[in-house]
Design a protein around this nucleic acid. Sequence first.
DNA 1: CTAGCTGCAAAACATTTGCATTTCG
DNA 2: CGAAATGCAAATGTTTTGCAGCTAG
Lengths: 124, 124
Amino acid sequence: MTKQRRTIIRVLSESEDHPDVEDVHTRAKQLDPKISLATVYRTLRLLEEAHILKCHDFGDGKSRFEEALTHHHHLIDQKTGKIVEFYDERIETLQHTIAKELGYKLVDHRLELYGVPWEQEKET
Amino acid sequence: MTKQRRTIIRVLSESEDHPDVEDVHTRAKQLDPKISLATVYRTLRLLEEAHILKCHDFGDGKSRFEEALTHHHHLIDQKTGKIVEFYDERIETLQHTIAKELGYKLVDHRLELYGVPWEQEKET
DNA sequence: CTAGCTGCAAAACATTTGCATTTCG
DNA sequence: CGAAATGCAAATGTTTTGCAGCTAG
């Protein structure tokens, strides 16, 4: 448990959004200016493997991280890029049912909705 | 409409799986040995933008492609890497409902299930 | 003290791009 | 012919790694 790891954990626990690695590095440097990008990468991977963080890929080529405190999914606002978190028991149940119907035990799942604010369906 | 593009389209329409770019390039070279990787990348992007192909990211860092003939989702077998395709109206409906409840019009969505064959839930 | 972590710079990937050349229509 | 596509190699962006020095316990 080094100073750098504590710093990175703190950055994530103080983040309300879904920062990418660069973001985490920038925020971490605020607290410890000489922390390196490699350490950020290594620590994030470590924390993800320990199921302390969740890693997402929202379509841009970057990995975004958040604490794995609660299980939830994301709706990405195509207009503004805003990310709305949600949890819905009906989805959870249905996914287990479907997996079972296909002969599988559900181990994990990924769900992302992409939407535009209602009443605003014009294209770019 | 060049020979290379025809070749790449043919490769995809003859593929039953979800090849990554390297796979497509390898298969295309069978038909036209001097086709370049850059052309494969350019053409795949083009076909995706034309909604002729769908691009997926199943967790390894590679883009995998398939024809966009039918709307469906994927269950990835964690044991064997096998990909099972499925379509379920209940999921479709529910996703629209949830988006609407959050104040959004659903434009697109991504769903992947990760599972292990039933009766075989041991870890690696 | 010493196993394990860090920082740095270099390497490894997947993907994109500039440009001279070729091809399609 | 002229616009658009190709091939090559170099560039890009993200993530990983080798290694010497530093740190926590």
